[in-house]
Amino acid sequence: MATIDLNCDLGEGFGAWSMGDDAALLDVVTSANVACGFHAGDPQIMLATCRLAAEKGVAIGAHVAYPDLRGFGRRPVPTTPDELFADVVYQLGALSAAASAAGTRVRYVKPHGALYNVAVRDAAQADAVAAAVAAVDPGLAVLALPGSELLRAASDHGLAPISETYADRAFQPDGTLVPRAHAGSVLHDPAEIAARVVRIVTEGRVTAIDGSEIAVEARSVCVHGDTPGAVEIAAGVRAELVSAGVELRAFA
């Protein structure tokens, strides 16, 4: 039987401002990428999200980012490898403490937004992220696009490299994500998304934005918690995967 992890970005509110329906999504997904305070999240939200994930048996990952609250972490921030190393250590430490207080633990790291996209191609930034993770806990996994510099760096530092794909994002012919500024970069139709994910998981193929067919290798599928209709999308993806005979379980 095929198996897949379903992950989602959660805990992305800040103060009185909320983002998405975390409680409903935690009933659907198997792994939660929890914001660590740099692009979103704060101490109370981090702790509450970890508690709810622990209650529902969902694996927790550190969703580390560039320090960019105003831009929601989607703008590249010029930083040296040493600065990035420290930033990742700081964020991972904060979430690890929150998870411990909630009776669980962090199992993996997934960069957010601009940091994720930069680390796909930038070897120095990818190495800084992986080195920081290994310095904090060499038993953690790193979640990223297949063939990325980040997965290479994770392997180089003795971490478990976990490849992922996206349910609600369009792909370029080289397998990278279509930038959000481009038309068609984010998908919204739940039925279309669910069918697409089933094909990725069962056939290892997806149609890129230019109509070409590309191979996809993934152990996890991401649904963005801030995408409109995220709960409906995630629930539809899960239902169609189960109907196709795919078992959903956390990779870590």
Rank of each mutant, 00 (worst) to 15 (best):
L26Y: 05
S185E: 05
H63M: 09
Q125N: 07
L187I: 13
A153L: 09
Y90F: 15
R249Q: 14
D22E: 05
A40M: 04
E12N: 12
I4D: 11
Y166Q: 13
H39C: 09
M19P: 03
L177T: 04
P179E: 04
A35N: 05
E12A: 08
A191I: 13
L115G: 12
A59K: 11
A252F: 15
H157V: 07
A65V: 08
A2N: 14
V216I: 13
V246R: 01
R121S: 05
Q44Y: 12
A234P: 09
H224S: 08
G41T: 02
Y108P: 08
P43E: 02
P146V: 02
V246M: 07
T207W: 13
V58E: 11
A86M: 15
T30P: 09
A114C: 10
R74C: 07
Q172P: 04
A134D: 02
A102E: 04
A2P: 15
V29M: 11
L150P: 04
R74H: 08
V88K: 12
R169D: 00
A98N: 13
P43W: 04
V77A: 04
S163R: 06
H112R: 06
D22G: 00
E203L: 06
V206A: 14
I4V: 14
Y108R: 03
E240Q: 13
A167H: 01
R180W: 14
V142F: 06
K56S: 00
L115Q: 08
L187E: 10
D122H: 03
D168T: 02
P43M: 04
T227S: 12
I200S: 06
G113A: 09
G139R: 14
L6Y: 10
A126K: 13
P67F: 06
V133Q: 11
V242I: 15
V77M: 11
L151C: 03
C8F: 02
C36H: 04
L6P: 06
V34K: 04
S96P: 00
R121T: 05
T165R: 02
D22V: 12
R105F: 13
A244K: 01
A135G: 06
V178P: 02
R180P: 03
G41S: 01
C8R: 01
E213P: 02
L25S: 01
V221D: 11
A24I: 10
I214S: 01
Q91W: 02
A128Q: 11
D210Q: 10
E192G: 07
V136M: 10
R180G: 09
G57E: 07
S100F: 12
A124P: 02
D21M: 05
A132P: 09
E12L: 08
G20Q: 01
A170G: 15
V216W: 01
P190F: 11
G20K: 02
G57T: 10
L241W: 05
L241V: 09
G20L: 01
T202M: 13
G204V: 15
P111F: 11
E164I: 00
P111A: 15
A124S: 07
T79M: 15
V186C: 01
R74N: 10
I60R: 14
H182C: 12
A131N: 11
A94L: 12
G20W: 01
P173N: 03
